Amino acid sequence: MEHSPVKPEAETAVINGLSVDVEDWFQVGAFENVIDRDDWDGLALRVEDNVLRILDMFGEADVKATFFTLGWVAKRHGPLMRRIVDAGHELASHGYDHARVFTFDRKEFAEDIGKAQKILEDASGAKITGYRAPSFSIDQRTPWAYEELAEQGYIYSSSVAPIAHDHYGWREAPRFAFNPLEGSDLVEIPVTTAILGGRRVAAGGGGFFRVLPYAFSRWAIRQVNRDEERPAVFYFHPWEVDPDQPRVPGAPIKSRLRHYTNLKKMAPKLRELIDDFAWGRMDEVAQREAALAKALHDEWAA
């Protein structure tokens, strides 16, 4: 597919957050009950080749993004972490091995984010200040998670999906950036939702982006940018641009449909999305959104 020129709206629009959740094909929540963590090292590692394809795509489009990366992946692909940083992208934490936050107690969570942070920093030489919970798993059950993130030096989190979903979701959470801790500068930037028929709908990427027509994502991000004048937060995974990845026998039909649908269409859709809107790193979005969240809080308090 020929790379199309940047469209006028991308030149003047709100800068949106472009992010990649770096995990391999066997580490996803859809397969957690059929692939044991103890078996991971015996499986074919495909994440490096897929990340390199993504880096090439971003380089051709001249966009920067944030790579929320598992400590498990960074431990095995150290030079790749340096390559991400050297290309001008942000490296951030996705936890160590994709365990959801609500499966931890507070001490276990602290150990997980600390372990991942150290591995990522040692591998890349970069300071890690951003975090995304596996499967957007910070919710009303884990009020202590933000305290631990702040204590360990994280500046922002993008760990909330403000919708109802069978695997995750915090429906009552704000749709846009908010300060989750009184007296702290830590900012939470939820993944994007749009309003359709008076209801919140997921519009920030992942399986929804692959399965639904591209016109839906374009409409949703335009709604957020133009009507609400806020940045969108979009994410995808390296395995989503890998249609030749192994198939998992014994996985539930719903999991297979979610994971494998439209893999061949993903890369062309991503190129169109990148061309249609303005994109940047999540730490840059966080800086702007933190200032706005503080201003809105101060205005409300006054």
Rank of each mutant, 00 (worst) to 15 (best):
P8H: 02
P8F: 05
E9H: 13
A13L: 08
A13H: 08
A13D: 15
I15E: 14
N16I: 00
V20F: 14
D21H: 11
E23M: 01
E23I: 01
V28K: 01
V28S: 09
G29K: 05
G29T: 06
V34M: 09
R37T: 09
R46S: 12
D49T: 12
E60T: 14
D62H: 12
V63K: 00
K64C: 04
F67H: 00
F68K: 03
T69M: 11
T69R: 05
T69L: 06
K75L: 12
R76G: 06
R76W: 06
G78W: 01
L80K: 03
R82Y: 01
R82Q: 13
R83L: 00
R83V: 01
G88V: 03
Y96H: 14
H98M: 07
A99N: 04
R106E: 15
A110C: 06
A116V: 04
Q117M: 03
K118I: 06
L120V: 06
E121L: 03
D122M: 08
G125H: 09
A126P: 04
A126Q: 14
Y131P: 00
A145D: 14
E147I: 03
E148S: 13
E151Y: 08
G153Q: 13
Y156D: 01
Y156W: 02
A161P: 01
I163W: 10
A164T: 15
Y168Q: 10
W170K: 10
P174E: 01
P174V: 12
R175S: 14
F178Y: 15
N179G: 11
L181Y: 10
E182A: 14
D185H: 06
V187Y: 03
V187F: 04
P190H: 07
P190K: 08
V191P: 02
A194P: 00
I195F: 02
A202C: 02
A202D: 02
A202G: 04
G204D: 09
G207Y: 08
G207D: 05
F208T: 11
R210H: 09
V211L: 14
L212F: 15
S217L: 06
S217M: 15
R218C: 04
A220W: 03
N225Y: 10
D227F: 03
R230I: 05
R230C: 09
P231R: 12
F234I: 09
H237V: 07
W239V: 03
W239N: 05
P243A: 11
Q245E: 10
P246R: 04
P252Q: 07
P252N: 08
S255C: 05
R256N: 14
N262F: 09
N262E: 12
N262Q: 12
L263E: 11
K264A: 14
A267R: 13
R271F: 02
L273D: 00
D275T: 15
D276W: 15
F277C: 11
A278S: 15
A278P: 01
R281K: 15
M282D: 00
D283K: 15
E284M: 11
V285Q: 12
A286S: 13
A286Y: 09
R288I: 05
R288L: 13
R288Y: 07
A291W: 05
A293H: 11
A295I: 08
